[in-house]
Design a protein around this nucleic acid. Structure first.
Lengths: 205, 205
DNA sequence: ACAAAATATGAACAGCGTTCAAGATATTTG
DNA sequence: CAAATATCTTGAACGCTGTTCATATTTTGT
């Protein structure tokens, strides 16, 4: 007997409900509150039911993180070359960084979960989800190619990763007020400065 | 009755043994393995004994992290202006960044715990420990003051925090191979580039 | 040496992710 | 349509976590 439609439908519906509930819990209470029992209670199913739909709780978290990345992708879309973005490459990159900064402030918990989780997780993050991360880095690469048409593709990706990591570090430590509290204005000014200074100081060719 | 010497001695000795054991477990197996029962077994005491010496398990972790910071402080000491460091300010800052990078590679688990922990922890990290972090940032400030004698002190600290956060971001995401694996050589080259480019691109005054 | 006070202990508690025998449900067969 | 069969769902239970507290032990004052 092949899996009937009834169960497939139910599982699919449950899957969506679980992700919805996970999203709500995460954005409201943070990653530590995103427990198997909490989502089960939220959607009114048994704890075991989660494991019929996801490999483990990390699978659910990855699904929620995937939604977060999609939201982030939309947020920064206006600074991605190719569409209606008429900005100079440098301003485009600064726009990306500032937008990233704003997203982190607006969706603190969900944004933090993107990285906290991959640190805490035991098994590898699935390729399809890492590809979603890489996709965003690709947006940076697009601007870099315009800025430095002669640069080899591999170098562009390296530089894009460098720029993102640096901006991310500033936002991550700044938001949790690691050394001292940094208000959002300051944060945006800092990442702008960082991006502009880095690009300006880059060795020619 | 006032606490006698016998118990005070025993507690002090136990405290050191617990930190030693915690250090060993952390460096060998990472933060998730640093559990109350694991350290208790390692030093041969009861689990409850830990709570006679530390407020909670986080207290022990902070104590271990404090040791890590001391090691890091020593590692980067040769790039701190004031002593036998005869380097130009810029080279000094690059040296700090590269040394930080090397430390992260050499003590991956202990280094990662410095930040993973403060993300996961509920209560605030004690001031004395945050001061230890700030102390290291102070080393960056020293070089910045030489590089830009006219810069206001507050700006120096902001810039120092920015530089550290950026370098940290690159090392953190690079070491866990977030987008793609980055070998140590590449990592050191990247942080050097980042620091030099940022300093070079900084607006004058 | 003895009583009193302070301290160390580890079983027990609440929570976590995860599993699996057993009950509930859908599907196929007669 | 009913019986038989295959599949899925459930929640109690397992092993783990940090933490607590009645109890046993040790130290201290007389």
């Amino acid at each position: 007997m092949v899996t009937g439609n009834k169960t497939a439908e139910r599982r699919h519906k449950l899957r969506l409900e679980l992700i919805d509930a996970g999203e709500a819990i995460l954005s409201g209470q943070g990653l530590p509150a995103l427990t198997a029992r909490a989502v089960a209670t939220a959607v009114g199913c048994s704890v075991g039911a989660i494991y019929n739909v996801f490999e483990d709780i990390d699978g659910l978290i990855v699904a929620v993180n995937s939604r977060t990345l999609a939201k982030l992708d939309q947020k920064i879309s206006s600074f991605v070359p190719g569409g209606e973005c008429g900005l100079e490459p440098e301003d485009c990159l600064v726009g990306l960084a500032v937008a990233y900064c704003q997203f982190a402030v607006e969706h603190t918990h969900a944004w933090a979960a993107l990285f906290e989780h991959s640190e805490r997780i035991s098994r590898e993050i699935p390729d399809w989800h890492m590809d979603e991360h890489v996709h965003l880095i690709g947006h940076i690469v697009k601007s870099l190619r315009r800025l430095r048409p002669g640069m080899p593709d591999d170098d562009s990706w390296q530089l894009a990763g460098l720029l993102f990591s640096a901006v991310h570090g500033v936002v991550a430590l700044g938001l949790q007020g690691f050394f001292f509290a940094v208000p959002q204005r300051r944060l945006e000014a800092q990442v702008s400065l960082l991006v502009r200074a880095t690009l300006a100081g880059l060795p020619r060719d």
